[in-house]
Nucleic acid binder design. Sequence first.
DNA 1: TTGTACGCGTTATCAG
DNA 2: CTGATAACGCGTACAA
Lengths: 319, 319
Amino acid sequence: MTNIKDLAKMSGVSVSTVSRVLNNHPYVSAEKKAAVLKAIECTNYNRNINAVHLSRGKTQLMGVVLPVTDTPYFALLLKGIAKRALENDYKLVLFQIDYAEEKEIEALQMLKQKQIDSLIICSRKCELALIQEHIQYGTIVLCEKTTEKSLPSVFIDHYEIFFQALEYLYQKGHKKIGYSVGRKTGSNSSLREQAYRDFLEKYKLPFYSDYIMDDCLYFEDGEKVMQRLRSMDIQPTALIITSDQVAAGIMIECQKEGISIPEQLAVIGFNNEPIAKMMNITTIDIPLVELGGDLFLQAYHGYNSNKQISVKLIERETV
Amino acid sequence: MTNIKDLAKMSGVSVSTVSRVLNNHPYVSAEKKAAVLKAIECTNYNRNINAVHLSRGKTQLMGVVLPVTDTPYFALLLKGIAKRALENDYKLVLFQIDYAEEKEIEALQMLKQKQIDSLIICSRKCELALIQEHIQYGTIVLCEKTTEKSLPSVFIDHYEIFFQALEYLYQKGHKKIGYSVGRKTGSNSSLREQAYRDFLEKYKLPFYSDYIMDDCLYFEDGEKVMQRLRSMDIQPTALIITSDQVAAGIMIECQKEGISIPEQLAVIGFNNEPIAKMMNITTIDIPLVELGGDLFLQAYHGYNSNKQISVKLIERETV
DNA sequence: TTGTACGCGTTATCAG
DNA sequence: CTGATAACGCGTACAA
């Protein structure tokens, strides 16, 4: 492995000059530059990027923490992040965490250890305080509405949109409304539950705990939802499903079982994935790719702002 | 930022001893070890991992090249890779390339520059020769059947399975068979076209170029396929669709238009995604998560082998 | 069991 | 414009 020193020797200049050529610094004579360039040619020289990182204290690496990558929500978020990363010549270190907190902490560690310059946390398991502690080591951007304003974030207001969806269903005559989430833990789910409880409160509606169904992430979970529905004494007449994938799965199941939508069961999906358009599912449009892009940009520039992304209900034919 | 030297000073030992403690080396007395540990406690010391990397010449980082992450094929592959990475304490650097060759080359560069120890290339755009050149810098594993045996790979035989699917359809009476692919370029697609042509040859069937439909990656592309079908003078009676997502999209479209499957149109999907099970789509079962895991393991251990993953046809109700 | 001293490859400072 | 030289922070022969 030839290094900068070898190049210097070969081209009859100092290492500084070689470094300058390597980094396109000005103030280096044409001849010397040519000599160095030639030496680089001959030796199939490769800069050891770790040395650069050590010297500079930066890595051009951004960490991305997410639980899984194979659900549309996170896949699209990641797509948006990756797109911007590509544009800005940043590399992404993927922390596909699988909801394991210790791995999340590892990501924080890597920030501390300067292996990554910044970190996007798409879904958080650890305490905010812990994250707070780490912002001194690099930019951290969250994808949730943080109460602590000091943490940068790009988010959608899950409380608001969930409440709005509930109101919409209520206005259509539904009083028994169930909903599904990916995981019950997590700040988004808490917000949704809060909205749900406030909604029930507002209209003096009863709370049935089994109306909240968790672990609904994939298409096939639609089957699970319908099974659970069947096991209920009082079945809901409407469902808010936090993924169009799952909503589509429910549609298919209902079709099989001869349950007509929206007459017998109303469904609101989430994300406005292409599948929702094709199957005419009423859904919440969330610009996930854009959201991902904004996450990247905020982490990239180190802005310390809290940006809300607006979403809207798309009325189609399942309510 | 306190460093190893500060620690040494504080705990009254040498840097080597500190380093030994840090790396759990044997032969360090309990007292000194305790002293160092205490110093570490007090100073909220963090090892600068770049320095470690520079010194060691390794990074515990593995690159993963793939065009997109939001199709089931690549998402599941990535899932498998990420799972094994998690187990083996390896971090992944994601090269979501979007089919841009220059970015693929960048990944190769990073291998050269020692920023990553190894590289998994899930989908290749550049020349094999170029990859060949880079194996001296680290392990590279491909996800295709390479003719050059010197390149490590884990793969499925797309030729074989495609031929098998065609035979299956032929045996069911189909003679006009079309198929879809994600991209026409790419080695998998070439293999499929080869199989397709050989099949036609074998049974003396005519070749219609518009029977090969590309750019079919997402659910919503099912719509596109059906549109193209309608524009054909002689429509195929059967379709092989290289993604269950798309196959499902086709199912939905056909339902809308009153085309009955398999009577009027037979469909074979790919991947055996959950959606295929729910919609009873005959498909090719490809253990993508396992395949991803194997890719990781091979890259991790640096095995130079060519492992074939076997796949099988799952008969359901769309043929 | 411990410490010294050097190497890893590059960048940055500063004097010239 | 150029070149010494000192960091950067850690690992590791080698010597003791």
